[in-house]
Design a binder for these strands. Structure first.
Lengths: 233, 233
DNA sequence: CAGTGGTCTAGACCACGTG
DNA sequence: ACGTGGTCTAGACCACTGT
């Protein structure tokens, strides 16, 4: 949208994308180095670097030191999904957010959980079952497990007035997380909790969080029927 | 992990994240400008700029010219999901990818489709129903609609030997796309197509694609039972 | 209008990883 | 070992937008 500037990194990106689309550079092949390209396009290397760096982050090319930059053979499109805090998400729709703790127990972690969190030890975990409501309507059922070895403060927190996610965000920094979207048919418990027919297709989000290889918490969230996530590319 | 350098943008990011976490700068409040910060941290403004730019793209802060940079009150965590081409996805698991066209018709678009694509006119659309298999197992059912006004080449393409997505990627550039994840209970048709029990919870992905405000194609993909999308933050 | 972020430049040093 | 990307710097001009 501008030819006024010197040679914007955006222009470079578009030009390179066009070349890739026109297979001037074949998929899988090596493209010229930063210095060569910046000379060809008449821009500073920093500018070219930013263009290429963003293209790499967009999944269009792959860069390796010494090896150079090559066109990805399968241009993996990617979508950025915002995972809002549930309170914001609900309040944004105009409803009141309400939270309720259903059950709070300390347990030894079941095998599937140990496998999921990649832990050897049998440290105790805090198991929380909660509901989130939008106005009077059930919005989400949450099955939360917190590793007490890495988050000992959780042992003395009742979680009756604050939901686990908000508490964790405030109290515990994390470094890595894994998110899994899947679906499930509502069983008896879920159908009652979420007030949906038995067998209804539900959207689920699992989230595992670590701090430097130490697992902090695992959560599985079951959304009300009809929930959807949307994003733009 | 390095104090060797001068002051890396990564260090700056971490330092700022820590300040936000420690509420040195309260949510919603304004933080100092780039110049002030770069002086305080002893780095060039370009370095500070990159750190702040990435933090903004991570959804931690919000930046506006003249207005300054402020901490987001609701730090929206976001996940980047890779949306692979189905052939790659299947072949990556070691199965053969197979594609089958079920039905190909030219129609006037139904109302819901016109609404979805935000189009006034009643231009004809090409409607394709397809199946994708992993080995002998049904993997995905695809319901695809292509706007013939914007993609006239599709009219003379049989789509018997190439799937719509691969053809479109090769032939038609696009500028914007919207992706929607949701779930559905398998109806009679889906249960037969995907070989799952009636009512099974299925993962669905809708995708609408534009080129400069002109709608190109709408697709709704129904995945086999048990499908999940996963990502790391 | 004036302040803040957005971007470009030209040059430099460094780290990684292939050959 | 050495080439390629990764990053930092110091300085400059520009574009947007709140006042």
């Amino acid at each position: 949208m501008s030819a006024t500037q010197k040679t914007s990194y955006g222009d470079v990106k578009n030009a390179i994308l066009k070349r890739i689309h026109d297979t001037v550079w074949a998929p899988g092949s090596l493209m010229p180095g930063e210095v060569a390209l910046s000379e060809e396009f008449g821009c500073a290397r920093a500018t070219m670097n930013r263009a290429l760096r963003e293209l790499a982050s967009d999944g269009v090319i792959e860069r390796k030191r010494k090896a150079g930059t090559r066109i990805k053979s399968s241009p993996t499109r990617q979508a950025k999904f915002v995972i809002p805090r549930i309170r914001e998400e609900i309040e944004a729709t105009g409803f009141d957010y309400r939270y309720a703790l259903i059950e709070r127990t300390e347990e030894t972690p079941p095998d599937w959980l140990r496998a999921r969190m990649g832990r050897k030890g049998g440290d105790d975990v805090l198991h929380l079952r909660c509901m989130h409501y939008a106005g009077s309507r059930a919005f989400q059922y949450e099955d939360r497990w917190i590793n007490l070895a890495s988050v000992p403060k959780a042992r003395v927190q009742a979680f009756e007035d604050i939901n686990p996610n908000e508490w964790l965000i405030r109290e515990v920094p994390f470094s890595d997380a894994e998110v899994i979207f899947s679906t499930v048919n509502a069983d008896q418990m879920l159908s009652e909790m979420l007030n949906v027919p038995l067998g209804a297709a539900l959207f689920t989000l699992e989230r595992i969080t670590w701090f430097k290889a130490m697992p902090l918490t695992y959560a599985k969230l079951y959304f009300h029927a009809g929930y959807q996530m949307t994003t733009r590319l």
